[in-house]
Design a protein around this nucleic acid. Structure first.
Lengths: 143, 143
DNA sequence: CTGCTTGCAAACGGTTTGCATTATT
DNA sequence: AATAATGCAAACCGTTTGCAAGCAG
């Protein structure tokens, strides 16, 4: 489960296995916890597969999100960032260096239950983003 | 505090008071809880001030966010949405009708304290987005 | 074989930028 | 008078789209 290969993950979701898809997913698994823009991934992978179209990376990422293998970060700052989705988690965003980190705050699960106003809202998921400064950037000032 | 005028709010933040800024802020106060794209606001306000440039609305919204009078919604779906920022709150996003709602889940405050890993992360704010179906859309299927 | 995927390049659309003009303080 | 904000239009750039060619199943 944890150690399924890229190929297995694709098949498990009923996706055709192409070299491009395998490559994207493999890299995201290798660097799990890193959050990529489509272009960063494209650049990084062209070294391994010179004929990799930028549009294809966009395509693949959208597909991976659709089937739940990847996630889009819930924030907007120029371009969308994608991360691999292994276990449920939340995010910390450093406002200085603009890096994203996966976190698992204790008590987050409880929150999903303590959801707001069940009459009006049928909650299916909860995204939490903590914002602030990472260890490296504590002490620095914004922008 | 709660009932400050648009003009007072602008001055309180050290912003010059222009007809355009007053208009934008007034409308956002009138319809507090609504979440606008820059274009929606531009369209809605051109009726009152025919000479209102689209770029100016973008400008003003960025400025309002900078000083904390407005907020950008932490999600990406085509164009950015902005809401007035009165009291701290969180959001519910209906994935069917794509409307945003302000919510105040009980227990959310506690979460800010139960923040993750104080060694690595200096948390300054917490954004929570609940996702699911609003009352109107319960029963409908996505897309 | 069939239909999904890819590569390529052009189109798209929300947002930003540059600059002359105008308004606020 | 000094400075900041506006209007306008062009530029920008991340993303999407259309279509012919290529593969996976």
């Amino acid at each position: 489960m944890e150690n399924m290969s890229a190929e297995e993950r694709l098949r498990a979701q009923g996706l055709r296995v192409t070299p491009q898809r395998r490559l994207v997913l493999e890299r995201m698994l290798q660097e799990a916890g890193r959050h990529w823009t489509a272009d960063e991934l494209h650049e990084a992978l062209r070294a391994q597969l010179s004929e990799l179209a930028r549009g294809t990376v966009y395509n693949i990422l959208a597909e991976l999100v659709r089937v739940g293998l990847a996630e889009e970060l819930p924030a907007r700052e120029g371009s969308v960032r994608y991360g691999i989705r292994l276990a449920p988690h939340h995010h910390f965003y450093c406002e200085i260096c603009r890096l994203w980190f996966d976190v698992l705050p204790p008590g987050a699960d409880a929150l999903a239950l303590a959801a707001p106003d069940r009459e009006r809202f049928h909650v299916e998921a909860v995204d939490i983003v903590f914002r602030g400064r990472c260890a490296v950037c504590v002490g620095r000032t914004p922008r």
